[in-house]
């Protein structure tokens, strides 16, 4: 890996951690639905999928989960595993959606948002035996505005970056 790419990825990682932590300060999104978030960190992951590769996105995503775990929620705590499940599944789903469908960046973002929540619900059901089927419907509906928002922001950012930076 060339040094330029390493430093860029490190910066993007730092950005995603900051966005993630910033988000957890918004009280509105804490504790109403387990795992429900605006998903601003997803902007970075989405960008990396489009600009670099699936592998890099997965790497950043996993590192982000671990870093946030160390910094805020505690490693191997319940919310750590929720984030891990959501992060892995959403990266995979976004990559597949980008590669095999005609969805635009906004559609891919919606898929990421949905799979992120679903990943968390799956973790909750499998490992903690919490009944959240009822939340599934609401998680799906909530994923729409957050997914569209994240997708739109990513699209605009990418447009600007494409013009100013040579990747």
């Amino acid at each position: 890996m060339e040094i330029k790419k390493i430093s860029r990825i490190a910066m993007l990682l730092a950005l995603s951690v900051v966005l993630n932590i910033l988000e957890s300060f918004m009280p509105l999104f804490n504790g109403i639905i387990p795992g429900f978030k605006l998903g601003l960190a997803n902007i970075v992951i989405l960008l990396v999928i489009y600009i670099y590769s699936f592998k890099d996105a997965l790497l950043i995503s996993l590192l982000r989960v671990f870093l946030v775990g160390i910094l805020r929620t505690g490693l191997f705590s319940m919310s750590f595993f929720f984030s891990l499940g959501g992060a892995i599944i959403s990266v995979i789903v976004m990559y597949l959606a980008k590669k095999f469908t005609k969805l635009s960046i906004i559609g891919v973002s919606i898929m990421g948002s949905i799979s992120h929540t679903l990943g968390q619900i799956i973790v909750a059901i499998i490992f903690y035996n919490i009944n959240m089927v009822y939340y599934m419907a609401w998680a799906l509906i909530l994923a729409l505005p957050t997914g569209i928002l994240v997708g739109y922001l990513t699209k605009e950012i990418k447009k600007t970056l494409d013009l100013s930076i040579k990747w």
Binding site: T101, K102, L103, S104, I106, G107, I110, M111, I114, L140, I141, A143, L144, I148
Partner: peptide, 14 residues
């Protein structure tokens, strides 16, 4: 946003 995005949104709501 393109057509397939809209289809996706509708399917999710359903």
């Amino acid at each position: 946003m393109n057509k397939s995005d809209l289809k996706l949104i509708i399917v999710i709501i359903l």
